[in-house]
C-alpha cells in the first residue's frame, strides 16, 4: 500500500483483492434435508390440514354424541364404504357426471361462439358484456322453475340451468383473455402473415390461455354446484337419479351418515377435478410457460 500514490483529494487508496478460490469455499448450493423438503411440499401441507380437520370432526361428533344430527367421521366413512362397495354411490355419481359433462361441454361450446362473435365486432362485444352483466349475477337455480315449465322434469331442464351457470363466466373470461393479449405479441403474430383462422388458433388462443383456463375452472365449479342443487330440488331426473338425489333420499330416511357420505362424494369429486385435472393442465401449460405463477 505504501508505494501507491494517493491523490490528495482521495481519502482512501484504490484497492484490488485476490478472490478466494471457489473450490475452497465448499458447496455453493447445499441440498435441503429430507424433512425440510417435506415441509416445503404443498401436497404434504395440505394433507396435514386435512388430517387436522378430520380429528376435529371426530372429536366434536363424539362429544356431541348425536348421530342423527351429526354423525362422526368414522360413521360417515363406514356409510361411504358400504355404499361404495354396494355400487350405489358409483352409480349415482356416474349419473351426475354424465349430465355434468353434457351440460358443461354444451355451455363451453356456446361460450366459444359468443366470444368469437364478441371478438369479431365491436357491436358483438357490447352485446356480450351487456348479457353478462345481466345474467351472470342471476343464480342458475332461479331459472329452474322456468326450465321445468319449458322442458318438463328431465335431464334437458337440468342442462339448461347448468348452461346458465357456466356460459357467462366462461365467455367473459375468454373475452377478457383475448383483450389482454399484449399489443406487441399481436403485431408479432400479424407480422408472420398468417391467415385469420391460423392467427386466432396459433396466437390469440394460446396467448389468452391463462384466462381461458381460469374461466373453465370457475365454470366447472359452478356447473357441479348447480347440478347437485338442481338434483336436490328435482329428485329423479333420469332413470336412477344422481348424487344430489342420493343426498336428499337419505335425509328423508334420516340416514344422516349416508347423507354425509353423499356430501363427501360431492366434495371428493370436486377436489379430484381441481387437483388432478385442472392442476395437471396448469402445470403442463401456463405454469411451464411462465404465464402464471
Amino acid at each position: 500500500m505504501a508505494n501507491v500514490a494517493i491523490h490528495p483529494a482521495a481519502r482512501h487508496a484504490d484497492r484490488e483483492y485476490n478472490l478466494t478460490e471457489v473450490g475452497t469455499i465448499g458447496d455453493v448450493a447445499v441440498p435441503l434435508s429430507g424433512f425440510e423438503r417435506l415441509t416445503q411440499n404443498g401436497a404434504f401441507r395440505r394433507a396435514l390440514v386435512l388430517i387436522m380437520f378430520a380429528i376435529i370432526w371426530e372429536v366434536a361428533a363424539r362429544w356431541a354424541d348425536n348421530p342423527l344430527m351429526f354423525p362422526s367421521l368414522t360413521d360417515t366413512l363406514s356409510a361411504f364404504k358400504e355404499d361404495m362397495l354396494s355400487g350405489v354411490i358409483p352409480a349415482r355419481a356416474m349419473t351426475s357426471l354424465e349430465v355434468l359433462i353434457m351440460g358443461y361441454s354444451l355451455a363451453i361450446s356456446l361460450a366459444m361462439i359468443f366470444t368469437v362473435i364478441a371478438v369479431a365486432s365491436s357491436f358483438g362485444s357490447v352485446v356480450l358484456t351487456t348479457l353478462v352483466s345481466m345474467f351472470n349475477p342471476l343464480p342458475a337455480l332461479a331459472i329452474l322453475p322456468l326450465a321445468l315449465l319449458w322442458l318438463g322434469v328431465g335431464t334437458s331442464a337440468i342442462i339448461l340451468v347448468m348452461i346458465q351457470a357456466v356460459v357467462w363466466t366462461v365467455s367473459m373470461n375468454t373475452f377478457a383473455g383475448f383483450q389482454a393479449v399484449p399489443e406487441t405479441l399481436r403485431m408479432a403474430g400479424q407480422n408472420f402473415g398468417l391467415s385469420r383462422i391460423s392467427y386466432i388458433f396459433r396466437i390469440l388462443i394460446p396467448a389468452a390461455f391463462p384466462y381461458i383456463l381460469t374461466g373453465l375452472k370457475i365454470g366447472w365449479a359452478h356447473a357441479w354446484r348447480t347440478l347437485i342443487g338442481a338434483e336436490l330440488v328435482f329428485g329423479v331426473a333420469s332413470r336412477s337419479g344422481g348424487i344430489g338425489w342420493y343426498i336428499f333420499e337419505n335425509r328423508a330416511q334420516l340416514e344422516t351418515a349416508h347423507t354425509f357420505a353423499g356430501l363427501l362424494t360431492v366434495i371428493i369429486i370436486g377436489f379430484l377435478m381441481e387437483n388432478l385435472v385442472f392442476r395437471v393442465i396448469e402445470r403442463r401449460t401456463v405454469l411451464k410457460w411462465g404465464m402464471m405463477r
Partner: peptide, 19 residues
C-alpha cells in the same frame, strides 16, 4: 398490410410467444 417480407424486431420482450 404486415407481411413476412418485412420482419420486425420490437423493443418489448413480449414479442416472443411464451408458450
Amino acid at each position: 398490410k404486415p407481411g413476412p417480407d418485412r420482419m420486425t424486431v420490437f423493443q418489448e420482450f413480449e414479442q416472443l410467444m411464451p408458450w
